[in-house]
Amino acid sequence: MKHHPLQEIRTRANVNLEYPHALPATRRDRLERWAELLERCGHQALSTLHETEFQPAQERAIMRADDSPLSVAFADPVLRAAGLNDDSYGEIRRFFGLSHNQLHKLVCYCHFGATINASVAAHSVRALIAADDRPSILARLRDMFRR
């Protein structure tokens, strides 16, 4: 085995010193990573999925589209290393721990038309993160009655 200085290796390969130590372990970490990836796409138009709410569950699970918010996530080697297996609707739901309703609002044609701006998709993913930070309605009611 021949040893090379890191600078020389960087000229031949894309070296990420954080990998694999920075694998997103929690749902929040994964969603943060996805939002960052979408933000890097700027104002790129990304494809939506057509009528996800009307598809039978088995067909909906395998739905996908090239150049979609789902494919942006799957193109990332860090998310793939963390366990993202493909860019299908069902796999994205599983990996990010999303409900059908949450993912539908994020990528369905009925909300955005044929395309969604990548920055709008990033904002929608960040809204999911913010929703996780808010206490549930039951917790808020409990706190109201404790006062």
Rank of each mutant, 00 (worst) to 15 (best):
R140N: 08
H111W: 12
L31F: 08
E59A: 05
T115G: 00
C41K: 15
L49F: 04
S47W: 05
S99M: 07
L70T: 00
T11H: 08
S119C: 04
T52V: 09
I116E: 01
I9R: 08
S47D: 15
S88G: 10
C108N: 12
L141P: 00
R28I: 14
A65Y: 11
S71W: 04
P24R: 05
G97T: 05
N101W: 06
A114G: 13
R30W: 06
I9M: 14
V15E: 09
E51N: 08
G113P: 03
L23E: 10
H50Y: 13
L84D: 11
I137V: 09
M63Q: 11
E32V: 04
G113N: 03
Q55G: 00
H43L: 10
A57T: 11
D29F: 02
L103K: 00
H104D: 15
R93L: 11
W34G: 00
T115I: 03
A45R: 11
R30F: 09
R93S: 09
A121E: 08
G42S: 02
E59D: 09
E32A: 08
H21E: 12
H111V: 05
A45F: 04
R93W: 02
H104N: 14
E32M: 13
S68K: 02
R134A: 11
E8D: 11
H111R: 15
K105H: 14
L103T: 00
A13I: 13
F54I: 08
V15T: 06
G113A: 01
N117M: 06
E59Q: 10
E91R: 09
F95L: 04
L98M: 13
P69K: 00
P20C: 01
E91T: 09
E51T: 05
A45I: 03
G42I: 02
A25P: 04
V120Y: 03
S99Q: 13
L17P: 04
V72P: 07
H21G: 14
N14P: 01
A57G: 00
M1H: 09
S124T: 06
I62A: 07
D76E: 11
P20Q: 08
R142N: 10
T115E: 08
Q7H: 12
E32Y: 10
S88E: 10
Q55A: 10
A22L: 06
P135M: 03
L46R: 02
R12M: 12
S71C: 04
G113H: 02
D133S: 13
G83D: 08
Q58I: 14
H123E: 15
D67P: 00
F112K: 01
Q55N: 07
H100F: 12
A114H: 11
G90N: 03
T115C: 08
L84E: 06
E18D: 13
R30I: 05
M144K: 12
F54S: 15
G97H: 09
A118C: 09
D29G: 04
S136C: 03
R94G: 02
R64N: 11
G83I: 10
R10F: 07
Q102T: 11
N101E: 14
R40K: 13
